[in-house]
Design a protein around this nucleic acid. Sequence first.
DNA 1: CCTTTACTTGACACGGTGTCAATTTACACG
DNA 2: CGTGTAAATTGACACCGTGTCAAGTAAAGG
Lengths: 197, 197
Amino acid sequence: MSSNKNRSTRDVILKSAWKALEETPDKSVRMSDIAKRAGVSRQALYLHFPTRGDLLTATSRYLDVVLDVDTRLIPSRTATNGLDRLNAFITFWTGYIPEIYGVAKALMVMKDHDDAAATAWADRMGAVHEGCVAAAQALSDDGALADDLSVEKAADLLWVLLSVRHWEDATKSCGWSQEEYVYHISRAARLSLLKPA
Amino acid sequence: MSSNKNRSTRDVILKSAWKALEETPDKSVRMSDIAKRAGVSRQALYLHFPTRGDLLTATSRYLDVVLDVDTRLIPSRTATNGLDRLNAFITFWTGYIPEIYGVAKALMVMKDHDDAAATAWADRMGAVHEGCVAAAQALSDDGALADDLSVEKAADLLWVLLSVRHWEDATKSCGWSQEEYVYHISRAARLSLLKPA
DNA sequence: CCTTTACTTGACACGGTGTCAATTTACACG
DNA sequence: CGTGTAAATTGACACCGTGTCAAGTAAAGG
């Protein structure tokens, strides 16, 4: 099978991209860096991915598989009430962010000056937004949603609170630990979304 | 006075940078764009500002003067209780963001791949953080701060809530109006920071 | 054995920043 | 009125990273 080798190089590249970005999420990782790490020529990258943006997006999808997003989302999807669903979703996503941060950061940076990357990022974040809508809807169904929030606004608010930049600000700029971040953000989310007790 | 002409070109450049960035905060404004708009050669820019980052930072400081930050901060500084101070500060800053967004965006983008710009941005945001600390302290003095927040954590939380990226997410990605943004963010801030009523 | 497919090598164009040197403009002052 | 000095112009160039292209190599598979 000729496509076997094809596949495997592709995977090597994706893994290398991941590792490189994970290692230095701050510094901008070049195509040549990834190639070197993959033990492959820079041009081989372009054989598999048209542009850097495509490689980054592919890497982030690759992560979803490797890190098994679907399994991780089960608690949230199977929650039996709104508050549980909200908590489960927040737990999932806040735990996921640090693992994808390297790749996410690269995409975030790129989206600021590359329309294709912007679309890709919007697409990825759209998935998170859907999760937020589901949680907000579940709260609404329970009558637990604060009175001055529509489902849509609640979802948006949650989404904004859970943004990767937000995590970055809190942990990198403010120096919060991951625990502090999770605690304060989920607290803020609950206080903002739920009807006052 | 020879430095008069010097000054005035400098100001023309700053104003042009401002206008250019205001016009297209999304697209990356080039040095040549600014030069053209200022009716000056590209090299003239480098005569006044060593690098693009320096020009951007100077522009943001220029805005603070032109938009009269000090006056705008008076209500916050003279508030007689914590809640008033918090509200005044939020009103100031949320109103200020849209006005500086173009320049801020350029700096934010640049900070992701330029250490000098990162420092400049951190410096500018440090000023905002100080405002957050002052507000949090005022709340604490009133005994109005939520029990599970230290002054420092409260300030950080407020700062994160008020980040420019946050505003960008809400208004650009979610399509909130400025009014909606102000309403929901200040609501979230109050609910998160204050002792439950 | 010969074709096809995956990959390599090395060269190059492009866009944007920053640098440099030579030149021109203008205005202040003796 | 000229002259010296500071400010600005012009055009060329180096650098970096992305993306393109053409020619060559290596190996699997019929």
